[in-house]
Computed example of a mutant assay.
Amino acid sequence: MTDPKISAFYVAVQEVNSLIQNGGTSSSRSLEEKIVEHLENAQLLGKLPKMGGAQEEVFMEVTKHGLRISAARSRLVKLRIPLIELVLLTTFVDGFGKTHAVFVEKSTTTRYQLHLLQLADDMAANVLCSLVKNAFVEAEEASALIEVIEPPSPSIA
């Protein structure tokens, strides 16, 4: 899979256990809406770094195994999120007109982490979403092929 690298700025990482675990409450809003509201509130309250500030520039790559985020300067891999641990991906434009991508990963049975990245524009967000969708489709197709293939019968002597 030779997919393009998507340039972004890594803004923040936060644990969001309470948002995920309380997702089944009586609220009719989706998890995506709750996460975006959480991030925008944190941004307005100054709990997130100022957008466009001194965040680290990174490249994101989507492979058949998951998401890889590497430092733009050193090319060292900073973060890997296997597809199986990717709970949510959404993109949004904040109140200041900046486009963001949000990844939520389930790193253990009780720990959920949110990764916030600032993208160049909506086109980069669309490409990222398309690449992740295609990775899941390919994984599902590969899984279906494995289930169809029957193991060889033991020979009876």
Rank of each mutant, 00 (worst) to 15 (best):
residue 1 M to Q: 07
residue 2 T to R: 09
residue 6 I to A: 00
residue 7 S to H: 08
residue 10 Y to L: 13
residue 12 A to G: 06
residue 13 V to K: 14
residue 14 Q to E: 13
residue 15 E to Q: 13
residue 16 V to C: 15
residue 17 N to H: 05
residue 21 Q to D: 07
residue 22 N to F: 01
residue 24 G to S: 14
residue 25 T to C: 09
residue 26 S to Q: 10
residue 26 S to R: 09
residue 28 S to E: 11
residue 29 R to H: 10
residue 29 R to G: 07
residue 32 E to I: 05
residue 32 E to D: 04
residue 33 E to F: 02
residue 36 V to H: 03
residue 37 E to L: 13
residue 39 L to F: 06
residue 39 L to H: 05
residue 39 L to Q: 04
residue 39 L to N: 06
residue 40 E to I: 11
residue 40 E to A: 07
residue 41 N to Q: 14
residue 41 N to K: 15
residue 42 A to L: 14
residue 45 L to S: 13
residue 48 L to C: 08
residue 49 P to E: 07
residue 51 M to E: 10
residue 53 G to M: 12
residue 53 G to K: 10
residue 54 A to V: 10
residue 54 A to K: 13
residue 54 A to P: 09
residue 55 Q to M: 13
residue 57 E to Q: 15
residue 59 F to I: 00
residue 61 E to W: 00
residue 61 E to V: 04
residue 63 T to N: 04
residue 63 T to S: 12
residue 65 H to D: 14
residue 68 R to L: 07
residue 70 S to N: 06
residue 74 S to L: 09
residue 81 I to C: 04
residue 81 I to Q: 06
residue 81 I to E: 03
residue 82 P to F: 00
residue 82 P to E: 05
residue 82 P to Q: 00
residue 82 P to Y: 01
residue 82 P to H: 01
residue 84 I to E: 14
residue 85 E to D: 13
residue 86 L to N: 04
residue 88 L to A: 05
residue 92 F to W: 03
residue 93 V to S: 10
residue 93 V to F: 05
residue 93 V to P: 04
residue 94 D to V: 06
residue 97 G to V: 03
residue 97 G to N: 12
residue 99 T to P: 04
residue 101 A to Q: 02
residue 103 F to L: 07
residue 104 V to R: 02
residue 104 V to S: 05
residue 105 E to R: 06
residue 106 K to P: 02
residue 106 K to I: 04
residue 107 S to I: 09
residue 107 S to G: 05
residue 107 S to N: 08
residue 109 T to Y: 10
residue 110 T to W: 06
residue 112 Y to F: 15
residue 113 Q to W: 08
residue 115 H to C: 02
residue 117 L to D: 03
residue 118 Q to M: 15
residue 119 L to I: 04
residue 119 L to M: 06
residue 122 D to M: 10
residue 124 A to S: 15
residue 124 A to Y: 00
residue 127 V to L: 07
residue 128 L to D: 02
residue 134 N to V: 07
residue 140 E to V: 04
residue 141 E to P: 01
residue 142 A to W: 05
residue 142 A to K: 14
residue 148 V to K: 13
residue 150 E to I: 11
residue 153 S to I: 10
residue 153 S to C: 09
residue 154 P to W: 09
residue 154 P to H: 11
residue 156 I to P: 01
residue 156 I to H: 11
residue 156 I to M: 11
residue 156 I to F: 13
residue 156 I to T: 12
residue 157 A to C: 09
